[in-house]
Design a protein around this nucleic acid. Sequence first.
DNA 1: AGCTGTTTAAAACAATCGTTTAAATTCTCG
DNA 2: CGAGAATTTAAACGATTGTTTTAAACAGCT
Lengths: 237, 237
Amino acid sequence: MPEPLTHSPETPQTIAESGRSDDRCRDTRTRLLVAAGPVFAARGYDGATVRDICSAAGVNIASVGYHFGDKLGLYRNVIQDVRLSRAERFPAPNTDVEDPQRTLHALVKTLLARMLTAEDSEWETELLMRELQSPTPEFENIVEEFFRPLFEQLVETISLLAKTDLPEQTLQQLAFSTVGQCLYYRVGARAIGVLIPEQQRRLHYGIDSLSRHITTVMLAAIENTSSMQHYIEHADH
Amino acid sequence: MPEPLTHSPETPQTIAESGRSDDRCRDTRTRLLVAAGPVFAARGYDGATVRDICSAAGVNIASVGYHFGDKLGLYRNVIQDVRLSRAERFPAPNTDVEDPQRTLHALVKTLLARMLTAEDSEWETELLMRELQSPTPEFENIVEEFFRPLFEQLVETISLLAKTDLPEQTLQQLAFSTVGQCLYYRVGARAIGVLIPEQQRRLHYGIDSLSRHITTVMLAAIENTSSMQHYIEHADH
DNA sequence: AGCTGTTTAAAACAATCGTTTAAATTCTCG
DNA sequence: CGAGAATTTAAACGATTGTTTTAAACAGCT
């Protein structure tokens, strides 16, 4: 029976608990993890084949079964690595109760940076976007661990900015308005590429310019929401 | 040689040009078109299987090969039908220069309706969203015929609402902020479903409630953008 | 009716998918 | 060194994919 972890794909490997510095094992394991991310991002979970991943990693096809149980196990580990990687690469700012405006701007900047940064970590964003449209069994965990913290910090910051007490659902909608604007410059990037000439795009669609714009929009909206939400209600007739 | 259009999948069928009222043929052809849309939308082009589509249409597996040449030929016809269908189902409102606020609200409502309407045409939106993430050669046409008219009308309406003259790129960014907020309630719908309990969602995330919220946000932003965009510029230090 | 061309039906095609097997190899450690 | 566990290898499994084939059923026309 040479199947050490067929029934426990969660546990990395048996010898890990012995504390050994498993050279060989860790090698193919990490090579799989490194190679799998971009492939999953480029072709989606279903579209990515284990053969492509293993070929890109330069390992045998059976390795994914041995080290991760199955394809989904590999995917889960990739997602987990993405979470760790992004947490330190794009750290969420601390909430500054003294200067919530700065906090909001920092949050927007973080969101936009995560969306638009085109480094070698570009595939990570693509992977998360794919989860939004074609969720895998990992989706709920991703929302809880990726989105909820930022969302709640956003709600809290907006709450600090509002002069009057706003109902919870209004705070949440304002938070979604913020996230939505940031997300659009990724989701709708291809449409923007058609609508806006490249020359203009280069000038006015950088992270700094956009974060300033979105923050301005939201500050104005927050300030006025509590006092001027009568606009539509009576014009609806 | 019983393969009439293997080399010309664009042409519907040979007898069409003879003007006959091809009952039988047109029947399975349209049944395939009607059934294929939702399947393509739900599972994506690759994920959708010819067998599923034919099973849903109640026709034989070989029919798609006969009528459309191959799977891609069927997909192209589906996309084309979507373009025609949506143009008349969700007409953009006319610009009312006397009441740009009402126009903006109507535009937001149209956008949200296209995004969130859960009729039988729901799959059309899903299909367009998939084109945003994984564009086909049809994508540019879709942007030009669907997005640009609404986008330019949005820019014009915002321009009418602004008290002072705003630079073109500011108007465009404001338009994207509007579209982005609307789009998010579809793109991020699955995330919202995790973040917000269903009970709350039912109450505050309908088209009316959201369009009112987004319009309020944008009216406040437009009104203040020209006079209070100093917020961040000097706080950046 | 009888023939011809068109359309559908059921089966089979080759290719590819994720996964498994069983032997070969490498490594660990007494 | 050499026994035994850990790991990698090559091959094959069964299921499913898009597509094609073969024969049967249907249409319209003389």
